[in-house]
Amino acid sequence: MAEEWTLVLVKPDGVKNRHVGEVITRIERKGYQIIDLKMIESTENKLRQHYADKVNEPYFAGLMSYMTEGPIVGIIVAGTNVVKAIHRMAGATNPVEAAWGTIRGDFGREWPDGNLRNVVHTSDNPANAKREIEIWFPERTVVDQ
């Protein structure tokens, strides 16, 4: 199996609550390689590209508000079958449903404003990983996976 690249975004709540180091530690403990890492201010344009399939959903305005609450940290991670592994490491999208031991299960939670603050985004398949990396790391060339 060939090496893949995937994207991890530590969302504003993860940055604010100082979980960036723990996310990086979990990635490195699994033996995956961090290819690139940067602090990013999300913009409406980037978020509309990234969440193109959700733009017309009723919850998109809340998602946009959440993702612009503060900086995010973008991480490109490489390894064999890394997309699937990192996605599982993140846990279920809803932190209440995420298993203990996953990033979202350990650090995410629901809040009274109704926004799911779930600490991280991870690519769910190799095609999305390539597309998402090109949005957040336009200076990087991703080899077809």
Rank of each mutant, 00 (worst) to 15 (best):
M1V: 15
A2G: 02
E3W: 11
E4F: 09
E4I: 07
E4T: 07
T6I: 11
L7N: 10
V10A: 05
P12S: 14
D13N: 04
D13S: 02
G14S: 14
G14I: 11
V15D: 07
V15G: 07
K16F: 14
G21P: 11
G21W: 12
I24H: 07
I27R: 09
K30V: 00
G31T: 03
Y32H: 14
Q33T: 15
I34T: 06
I35W: 05
D36L: 10
D36Y: 12
D36R: 15
L37F: 08
I40M: 11
I40H: 03
E41L: 08
L47S: 04
H50D: 12
Y51P: 13
Y51Q: 13
A52G: 00
K54R: 15
V55P: 04
N56E: 12
N56H: 13
N56S: 10
E57R: 14
E57G: 05
Y59P: 03
A61D: 12
A61N: 11
A61C: 01
A61K: 13
G62Y: 05
L63C: 02
M64D: 01
S65L: 03
M67E: 07
G70D: 02
P71F: 10
P71M: 13
I72L: 07
V73R: 06
V73P: 08
G74L: 10
I76E: 05
I76R: 08
V77E: 04
G79I: 08
T80A: 09
N81R: 08
N81S: 09
V82F: 07
V83P: 02
V83I: 06
V83E: 06
A85W: 00
I86H: 07
I86L: 12
H87T: 08
H87S: 14
R88A: 06
R88M: 07
M89N: 06
A90Y: 12
G91D: 10
A92N: 08
N94C: 08
N94Q: 06
P95K: 15
P95G: 15
V96P: 04
E97T: 06
E97A: 12
A98C: 13
A98D: 12
A99P: 06
G101C: 11
I103V: 07
R104P: 03
R104T: 02
R104F: 02
G105Y: 00
G105N: 00
D106H: 04
F107C: 00
G108K: 05
R109K: 13
E110G: 03
W111P: 01
P112D: 15
D113F: 09
N115D: 12
L116E: 04
L116G: 02
R117A: 12
N118L: 11
N118V: 13
V119Y: 06
H121E: 14
T122K: 14
D124K: 09
N125A: 09
N125Y: 10
N125E: 11
A127C: 00
A127N: 03
N128C: 02
A129G: 08
A129V: 09
K130W: 01
R131M: 00
E132Y: 01
E134N: 13
W136G: 01
P138K: 13
E139C: 04
E139D: 14
R140L: 05
R140V: 11
T141K: 13
V142D: 05
V142C: 06
V142R: 07
V143F: 01
Q145R: 07
Q145Y: 10
Q145T: 06
